[in-house]
Design a protein around this nucleic acid. Structure first.
Lengths: 246, 246
DNA sequence: TGAATAGTGTCTGTCAGACAATATGGG
DNA sequence: CCCATATTGTCTGACAGACACTATTCA
């Protein structure tokens, strides 16, 4: 029995990206200014249509590369690339005024980047503090993001906050080699709290497989030189890092 | 600038359901036999096409009601309904031989049901043990599920296993009122382990907001009568229930 | 020397795992 | 009485939070 195309409705499918990084001790998200008609001129999450022969994750990686120049290391490999995972799918009938669009949102965790945007033209992309975007009232400081992107961003930030609790994913915000203090500042920025440096050090160095000491090398950031580590193979963190006030 | 429909490819969007329950001390998933052409006669997850004016979650709830008669209590409300949440989205180009289909999988946790299927005809649906379906070799005992449903099922089971760890969601597998022992048997079935009844009792009754004692009522299941509880408002469980051997 | 950060050690309260003991129903 | 399950209590080891103290570098 062949299938009648009129049997089922037709959808457009997009990928939207919640790209997070830690800059100047704050969790920041990447926004782009829309140059096209729905919500033209407003800020939005990067993203675009999925092509006809393209995997969802490939589409997300392609959009990420096009809009930021970032490469992702797909599976199990560590560093020299951003972490990418599927976040959730948003398909409310009215979310795009043009037509029925289902958006598969993805979450990207990246180390701090030198230029705000390597791929797009300047002024059309920027890092914005997550607390500023999600903060006070329900909308944000400016007119709010295009489409339902404010909600997608909130979901992405919440996913990142909860995921570093029980996984070693916080290292995705750090360069390939980092110190315990740098990792701690990632947790502090993402959670918006202060952590005791002594207890944090004891916890992360005492969890087997979490941190691997790179050659006794050191670096500076102020005081006494610190050991350099890279992320270990352990992706699950047990017992989890406990978020204070939880 | 109006949009040219040829600019973006057209997709069909479906919802697939991973419906889990606990029967006879085993985690079971609901399967339906396909009556239509791709994979006709094979077992598959329940699901269907999303309608043109329908929310994704509404589509999932509708398919669930059509195929099982189960009602879901959407948000924040407890009991007399199954728990439904979005799981993940699968959109590999070749996953459906007919055309490009993106499937938004949902996870449903339901208490044990009297009849295998209330909605469909007999013999076209059945509960199958999850460990049997996912067990030994990569495929399962029979020829395997249609489409990529084996992977979706595996993702759903893994989500359920990890989610009852840090949420009170295990109560979704229980009837509205249940005993501590019944709840423990849910954990044991989903995780496939044995838990110490004494320590489990201390843990769940000691977590504020997790269990609310219903009138001093009791029931039986063998030995001394047990107190009846219903799920409390607390959805997050902190500190989490620790899965043994982790 | 003083400021700043890194790293180690100690103390204490909480909690999970092991398990003894008691309570209460059915056969 | 015997058996099964529920429920309470005790003990112990692991670990998080608080915090004193030492180490090492730069200005």
């Amino acid at each position: 029995m062949p299938y009648d195309p009129s049997e089922y409705p037709s959808f457009a499918v997009t990928v939207d990206l919640v790209v997070l990084t830690v800059r100047r001790h704050a969790l920041c998200a990447l926004l782009v200014r829309r140059g096209e008609d729905p919500y033209r001129g407003q800020w939005a999450l990067p993203g675009g249509f999925v092509r006809a022969d393209e995997d969802l994750e490939s589409a997300a990686a392609r959009e990420l590369a096009e809009e930021t120049g970032l490469r992702t290391q797909d599976a199990g490999s560590w560093h020299a690339g951003a972490h990418l995972e599927q976040l959730a799918t948003y398909g409310e009938p009215g979310r795009d005024p043009r037509m029925r669009v289902v958006s598969v949102a993805h979450l990207v965790l990246a180390p701090d980047l030198p230029s705000p945007t390597a791929g797009g033209d300047a002024g059309s992309a920027q890092w914005r503090s997550a607390s500023e975007l999600l903060g006070g009232a329900g909308g944000g400081t400016d007119e709010g993001l295009a489409f339902d992107h404010a909600r997608i961003l909130a979901d992405g930030v919440e996913r990142a906050r909860s995921k570093i609790e029980y996984s070693s994913l916080a290292a995705a915000f750090c360069p390939p080699e980092f110190t315990v203090g740098e990792l701690r500042r990632v947790y502090e920025a993402v959670w918006g709290v202060s952590l005791d440096p002594r207890n944090f050090h004891r916890k992360v160095t005492g969890t087997p497989g979490f941190l691997v000491p790179v050659g006794g090398t050191t670096t500076r950031q102020g005081g006494r030189p610190a050991q350099l580590f890279r992320a270990g193979g352990a992706s699950a963190l047990n017992p989890p890092m406990l978020r204070p006030e939880g």
